[in-house]
Simulated assay, not measured.
Amino acid sequence: MKNIAGKTNPSADEIAEKAASGEDVSLYFTNKGEMKPAVQRVNVDFGVDMIKELDAIAKELNVSRQAVIKLYVRQSLNLHYLARKGMESK
């Protein structure tokens, strides 16, 4: 975003405050972004051995355990859809 009249860009909180007070904040938005779907928290129980494996992988990749879980779930879903697509083409 370009600086407006030499001023630094306001933070998201500052923009929110301006909007809440009724100021026009449309100049801060380009409409080139995309809305991300809401995140829903879930609880999953893992055995101690699986947690140790996940933690070892997370340490190796230098990421959080949550990032490893998300990565592997995404990969598994992708494989599931690819397998389903392959079965449909027969």
Results as ranks from 00 to 15, higher is better:
residue 3 N to W: 01
residue 4 I to T: 06
residue 4 I to W: 12
residue 4 I to P: 02
residue 5 A to I: 04
residue 5 A to T: 04
residue 5 A to K: 09
residue 6 G to L: 07
residue 6 G to F: 08
residue 7 K to H: 14
residue 7 K to Y: 08
residue 7 K to R: 15
residue 7 K to S: 09
residue 8 T to R: 11
residue 9 N to L: 11
residue 9 N to C: 05
residue 11 S to Q: 03
residue 12 A to N: 09
residue 12 A to M: 10
residue 13 D to Y: 05
residue 13 D to N: 06
residue 14 E to I: 07
residue 17 E to H: 07
residue 18 K to T: 02
residue 19 A to K: 13
residue 19 A to I: 06
residue 21 S to I: 03
residue 21 S to H: 12
residue 21 S to N: 14
residue 22 G to K: 01
residue 22 G to E: 05
residue 22 G to W: 06
residue 22 G to R: 00
residue 22 G to N: 06
residue 23 E to L: 15
residue 23 E to D: 13
residue 25 V to E: 00
residue 27 L to S: 07
residue 27 L to R: 06
residue 28 Y to L: 01
residue 29 F to C: 02
residue 29 F to Y: 14
residue 29 F to R: 00
residue 30 T to E: 09
residue 30 T to I: 01
residue 31 N to A: 13
residue 31 N to W: 05
residue 32 K to G: 14
residue 33 G to N: 09
residue 33 G to P: 03
residue 34 E to C: 08
residue 34 E to S: 11
residue 34 E to H: 08
residue 36 K to I: 08
residue 36 K to N: 12
residue 36 K to H: 09
residue 37 P to Q: 10
residue 37 P to C: 07
residue 37 P to L: 10
residue 39 V to A: 13
residue 41 R to H: 15
residue 41 R to F: 11
residue 42 V to R: 05
residue 43 N to V: 07
residue 43 N to C: 04
residue 45 D to I: 11
residue 46 F to I: 09
residue 46 F to G: 02
residue 46 F to D: 02
residue 46 F to S: 01
residue 48 V to H: 05
residue 48 V to P: 01
residue 48 V to N: 04
residue 49 D to P: 00
residue 50 M to C: 11
residue 50 M to A: 13
residue 50 M to D: 12
residue 53 E to N: 11
residue 54 L to D: 00
residue 54 L to T: 01
residue 54 L to Y: 00
residue 55 D to R: 10
residue 56 A to W: 04
residue 56 A to D: 08
residue 56 A to H: 07
residue 57 I to G: 01
residue 57 I to Y: 06
residue 57 I to H: 01
residue 58 A to M: 08
residue 58 A to E: 05
residue 58 A to P: 04
residue 59 K to R: 13
residue 60 E to Y: 07
residue 60 E to W: 03
residue 61 L to Y: 14
residue 62 N to A: 15
residue 63 V to I: 15
residue 64 S to T: 15
residue 65 R to T: 06
residue 65 R to G: 01
residue 66 Q to F: 00
residue 67 A to R: 06
residue 68 V to R: 00
residue 68 V to T: 02
residue 68 V to M: 00
residue 69 I to G: 02
residue 69 I to C: 02
residue 70 K to A: 14
residue 70 K to G: 04
residue 70 K to R: 14
residue 70 K to T: 07
residue 71 L to N: 00
residue 71 L to R: 03
residue 71 L to S: 02
residue 72 Y to M: 02
residue 73 V to G: 03
residue 73 V to C: 08
residue 74 R to Q: 11
residue 75 Q to F: 03
residue 75 Q to S: 09
residue 78 N to G: 06
residue 78 N to L: 14
residue 79 L to C: 06
residue 80 H to G: 04
residue 80 H to C: 07
residue 81 Y to D: 10
residue 82 L to K: 14
residue 82 L to E: 14
residue 82 L to S: 13
residue 82 L to Q: 12
residue 83 A to H: 05
residue 83 A to D: 11
residue 84 R to L: 15
residue 84 R to K: 15
residue 85 K to E: 14
residue 85 K to F: 03
residue 85 K to D: 09
residue 87 M to L: 13
residue 88 E to V: 13
residue 88 E to G: 02
residue 88 E to M: 13
residue 88 E to H: 05
residue 89 S to K: 13
residue 90 K to Q: 11
residue 90 K to E: 11
residue 90 K to R: 12
residue 90 K to D: 07
residue 90 K to M: 09
